[in-house]
């Protein structure tokens, strides 16, 4: 690789503080470890995103394709100031979220992909990335949009977001903002997690990001219909 030319292509990056991992107790009693990953994890994460690319249900295809591109772009230094958090249960990857810093004051929320459904995994991970932007990076607000009705309900309504003029980075979609004030107003109700993560849980999470089989991922996303008695 010609690093001289590459240096022109790579974006400059801001320093971002580390996100301390946390553990969330789910409705099942299971423990969801939420932690930050770096670029090295991206090839593994893409394996989990790939099965979603042709699933129109709940716009998984759009979210999957875009997340795939964002993660790949980050991995190959073509996206600026992106961060990625993942959720794992017993090492198994159950969700991915990512965001990009726009300025020292504003972050742009990109995507939330829940692989395990019905456990508020997406909601917990979305809350975690808001926590990172507001509490750890010190942003004044996060710009957000939704590409699915579920996303709209989950983010826009649950957090009572403020509408903004202009466009979100993901296209012409209407942007909304989670302000610092809104975040703290909703934190007790929506942001879960305990720190530090017990050592044994953290070790399991860091040992390997386990990816479910393509069939399992599709079953989780599509629901019971694929598996039975029809």
């Amino acid at each position: 690789m010609d690093m001289e030319l590459e240096a022109y292509l790579r974006p400059p990056e801001m320093d971002m503080p580390p996100y301390p991992a946390k553990v969330i107790t789910l409705a099942t009693g299971g423990k969801l470890v939420v932690r930050q990953v770096n670029r090295d994890a991206v090839p593994r994460l893409l394996q989990a995103v790939r099965p979603t690319l042709e699933v129109p249900r709940d716009y998984y295809d759009i979210v999957g394709v875009r997340l795939y591109a964002e993660l790949l772009g980050w991995y190959r230094y073509r996206v600026r100031d992106e961060f990625c958090l993942i959720g794992q249960i017993d090492g198994l990857l159950v969700g991915i979220v990512n965001t990009r810093a726009y300025s020292p004051e504003v972050d742009i929320s990109l995507h939330t992909l829940a692989i395990e459904r019905g456990l508020r995994i997406g909601a917990h991970l979305f809350a975690a990335k808001m926590e990172y932007s507001i509490e750890y990076c010190g942003r004044e607000e996060v710009l957000i949009t939704a590409e699915s009705p579920i996303g709209f309900r989950r983010w826009m309504i649950e957090y009572d977001l403020e509408k903004r003029e202009g466009q979100h980075e993901l296209g012409g979609a209407t942007p909304y903002a989670l302000t610092r004030d809104l975040y703290y107003r909703n934190k007790e109700r929506l942001v879960a997690g305990e720190r530090p993560v017990p050592e044994e849980l953290m070790q399991v999470a860091e040992r390997e990001i386990i990816i479910a089989s393509e069939e399992d991922i599709l079953e989780k996303i599509l629901g019971a219909k694929r598996r039975i008695v029809q």
């Binding site: 107790t25 789910l26 409705a27 099942t28 009693g29 456990l119 917990h124 109700r189 997690g193 305990e194």
Partner: peptide
């Protein structure tokens, strides 16, 4: 088709979020 627990939906201090 999901098992839930008393801790996860009621007893845990953050169960109200689940």
């Amino acid at each position: 088709r999901m098992k839930i627990t008393m801790e996860g939906v009621l007893k845990h201090p953050q169960a109200h979020i689940n």
